[in-house]
Design a protein around this nucleic acid. Sequence first.
DNA 1: ATTATCTATAGATCTATAGATAATGC
DNA 2: ATTATCTATAGATCTATAGATAATGC
Lengths: 197, 197
Amino acid sequence: MRVSKQQAAENREGVLDAAAKLFRERGFDGVGVDAVMAEAGLTHGGFYKSFASKDALVAEACTRAFRQIDDFWGGYAGRPGKGLAAAVGWYLSRRHLDSPGDGCVLAALAADAGRRGPTARAVFSVGLERWVGYLVRLLPGASEARRRDAALARIATMVGAVAIARALDDQSLADEILAAARIAVLADYAVPEGQSR
Amino acid sequence: MRVSKQQAAENREGVLDAAAKLFRERGFDGVGVDAVMAEAGLTHGGFYKSFASKDALVAEACTRAFRQIDDFWGGYAGRPGKGLAAAVGWYLSRRHLDSPGDGCVLAALAADAGRRGPTARAVFSVGLERWVGYLVRLLPGASEARRRDAALARIATMVGAVAIARALDDQSLADEILAAARIAVLADYAVPEGQSR
DNA sequence: ATTATCTATAGATCTATAGATAATGC
DNA sequence: ATTATCTATAGATCTATAGATAATGC
């Protein structure tokens, strides 16, 4: 019943992976500690040897989920121009909609995070700030301040579009809002100056 | 212990008001039937005389919450030009952030709705479509199709900005994303042609 | 007599803890 | 001997139901 120190560390990682996935799929209140442990292939009793509380798990699991944003947007942040369209294309896609457990933590859990305490909210503040940094690098524009505003607004558009599209029963309306968001996020940036609108 | 037919109808309305408020504040999974009934000043046992299930309550409470969107945006939809800035000004305000129980149902519950069944999601589809209708009337623009795209994207921006801002621990970052969304939502529309960007 | 609400409770689930178990690591 | 995990369970909470209660409405 006891495993090696390394295996125990791997198990802890597995719990975090399971939590990061399940929370995004069902929300913080929709997933119990038992479900997370079961997803990780463990029994629920051992949970509190690794984590102080469910709240601590929430914070760590979100930190982990934000790392996927780093990987994705950070990966595009080096390249200019075409990178933005490709990244936005995936973000505002049906594929992203249909895989919340592996998708953007903000689109899946921003409202849930708003109902939690300072610990989880701090993770979201730091994570958002990093995403803004990557996006600022992808957006051409005059001043740094303007690019920062543009990045913040575009993140809001993308996150809102995915969250809303998931809430809809009407698939064609969901596709419409994704398409409309794509146009708004790429307009004035991917398209040469003065060509759009 | 029994009340008049009229009083019973009023009690049912009170339960829906309580649910519409509490769900937006704590999420569907964060509020039990008992809490809703207590908020309405009733005991939980009587709940199932009025509603078939919690799911039925969720759907009806969201329908009620969407009616507030009708009142607010529908009220502005008649007037052109200046109405948009005023409506957006409230929507993207600290006051709205701080009163989720009386605020936009999409900003508070879109992600939650995405985890529910077709009944609740149908309410969101119909409610969103109505909001789009009001906003299309507020947005000048060339073709109907372009105005519809603009309305959808701007709804996504507003909903995303409020949901994200609520998730943040950092108040100044929250204010920043609200301000950035304000600029993005009003640009090219409230500002005379060619003057912005 | 009907019925809106209340009291009480069943059965499930959730967070958290206690103690047992058995393999690791000194 | 230490400790990672398991079994078992406490105490709270959640959805839903059953039966009692008492005022309405025929």
